[in-house]
Every structure is written in structure tokens, then in C-alpha cells.
């Protein structure tokens, strides 16, 4: 087993375990911390696929900014207590069965797809480097890039309007 394969399986198991722990842990703060572990594992997956720019962006935006925002809201509202009233056992069972059924259907649909023998190249390829991505972003995709700045502005205005006391 090569180092790439070992890293792939290790990171996959880490990501799946942390995702399950995120869903089942009672305290919201623990959920946020497990989700940060998932994001780190996915970022290392990106490095493994040689998408280094997106790995760094994933770390900064998701594991940095968004998760800090979540932690901030949880601390601000003092939701640290393990409060989950109205425990309904059947609701949980149906939720797990629903997710499992979706997974079963998708696995059954995809296991015979003719894409199966293709290889996703790891540790090589230049397209994930910041030079090539920046060239594509500012040549072909410059209009969506500018529109996304308008999206951010409207999101900022919306957040302030929703969040202020009326």
C-alpha cells in the first residue's frame, strides 16, 4: 500500500467518523469542533488531489471563518447546555432510515456506472495551482467573479438588516 493510498483511507475514515460524531454529539460546541475535523480532513484530500489553492481556501473560509462564526453565535446565545427537548425516538429512527435509504439508492445506481474504471490523478497535474486557477478566474470567469462581490454586498446588507433590533 503506497503512502497516497494509506493517506486516502486514513483521511476517509477520519472524515466519516468525525461526520458521524458531529451528528450524534449532544453539545453544539462539540459538533462544531467535530465539523472542523471533517473540514481539515477534506482539505488534506484536496492537497492529495493537488488542488492546493482550494485546500488553502477551504481551510481559511470554512475551518477558519465559517466555523468561528458558528462558535461565536453558539457562545453568544449561550447554547452550550445540552438542551434538546421533545426527544422523539421514532423521528430519529425514521431520519436514519431515510438517509440510509438514499445512500442505498445512490450506491445501487452508481455501482455499475461506466465511469468506474477511471482514475482521479493524485500528486500531479497543474490545474489546481493558484497560477492556473487565477488565470482562468480572471480571464473566462471575470463576470461571475464581479457578480459574486455584489452577492457579498447584498449578503452583508441583509445580515445587518435581519440582525438589528427593530
Amino acid at each position: 500500500m503506497s503512502a497516497t493510498q494509506f493517506l486516502f483511507w486514513f483521511l476517509s475514515i477520519l472524515a466519516l467518523f468525525s461526520a458521524i460524531m458531529m451528528v450524534v454529539s449532544k453539545s453544539p460546541v462539540h459538533s462544531v469542533l467535530w465539523l472542523i475535523v471533517v473540514f481539515f480532513a477534506i482539505s488534506v484530500h484536496y492537497v492529495l488531489l493537488n488542488a492546493q489553492f482550494l485546500a488553502i481556501v477551504n481551510l481559511i473560509v470554512y475551518a477558519g471563518a465559517i466555523m468561528v462564526l458558528f462558535l461565536f453565535v453558539i457562545m453568544l446565545m449561550n447554547l452550550n447546555a445540552e438542551t434538546e427537548p421533545l426527544k422523539n425516538k421514532w423521528l430519529k429512527i425514521t431520519g436514519v432510515i431515510g438517509g440510509g435509504a438514499l445512500m442505498l439508492v445512490l450506491v445501487a445506481a452508481l455501482k455499475d456506472a461506466d465511469i468506474r474504471n477511471r482514475i482521479a490523478e493524485t500528486n500531479k497535474g497543474e490545474i489546481g495551482l493558484i497560477h492556473n486557477l487565477g488565470m482562468a478566474l480572471f480571464k473566462e470567469y471575470v463576470i461571475p467573479f464581479e457578480i459574486s462581490s455584489v452577492l457579498f454586498l447584498s449578503a452583508m446588507v441583509g445580515t445587518v438588516v435581519i440582525g438589528k433590533k427593530e
Partner: peptide, 16 residues
């Protein structure tokens, strides 16, 4: 697929 379905199951089961 597994990560996505864990997310779906979390949306369906959690109330927070």
C-alpha cells in the same frame, strides 16, 4: 456519497 447521506440523516434527525 457517505458524507452527503450523513448530512441528510443529520438534517432529518436533529432538532437544533
Amino acid at each position: 456519497l457517505a458524507l452527503f447521506c450523513i448530512g441528510i440523516a443529520g438534517v432529518l434527525t436533529r432538532r437544533n
